[in-house]
Amino acid sequence: MTTEGELLERLGAGKLVEGPQHATEAYVRALTRTLIVSGDTELISAPAYLRAAQHAPSTGAYMTVVSMIQDEIGHAHIAYRMLRDLGVDADALVYEREASDWRYPYAFDVPLDSWAELVVANGFYDRAGYCLLGDVHEHTSYGPWKRALVKVEYEENFHLRHGERWMGIYAADPDRKRDLQAAVDWMFPLTLEWFGLPDHLKRHSGQLSYGLKGRSNDELRQRWMSTAVPLCEKLGLDVPAHRDEATGTYVIDCPFPMAFDEEAKRWDTSRAVSWDDVMVRWKARGPANEEFVAKVQRGYKQLVAA
């Protein structure tokens, strides 16, 4: 471990942190928190996508999802391996932690129940992951993570291309386009939430000051919209956001945040809620949280916790 002054000097000189020897306890705490969110998000996407893959239109399409699941578990493994190197008991984290203690975006707690929903998840959620990880890759001060992300980004890009390809196929057919629009309707605002509290409400977490990420929540939300909105417009899909030509930024055209009925997968556009209300929903976790965590942990528990 080093002192806060030495650490900040190191970061100021643009040098990377290669391990705890270059860091302070506070830095390791902030890094640990960030890596847990990243690992949990990658890992929980696997049961979420596997469930949706049961609706795949062909064996080839199913195999493509299995290959994405393979990527996602691999990415999760990278994050947990780095946690292990920081002294965290990664096995306990993955296989013994209570479902409600997992730290991935709430969106994955709402189950994907059709092929349309799966490909929108690829187009929206994997794009969100790509924005976040792209930012980490560009800006992170933690060397091992920066290097690991080259492959991760490449694969995430493939997932979101998969989403775009299938969204295009569905948009070309009037019946399937209705299903696609229905999926977009509930998944678009949920992905807006993915990036977290707006900047003016965000508590200081050390992520920015320690250079663990470069862009703020609102900047990342903008970045996501800057490709997701044009994609939807090109496919003739309605989304509650548009580009303001004067400022060049994206404007959200629905109450944000908004009340969400998670069982019906429906937003109540007439009702704005507070971010405190959203935090309560996130903390309570959503409908598939226990199912997905149990899926991840079942093999281990049959052998260890039995």
Binding site: S58, G60, A61, M63, T64, V66, S67, R165
Partner: peptide, 8 residues
């Protein structure tokens, strides 16, 4: 033969 991209 395990390539998931064959159809595409």
């Amino acid at each position: 033969i395990a390539c998931p991209c064959t159809e595409v």
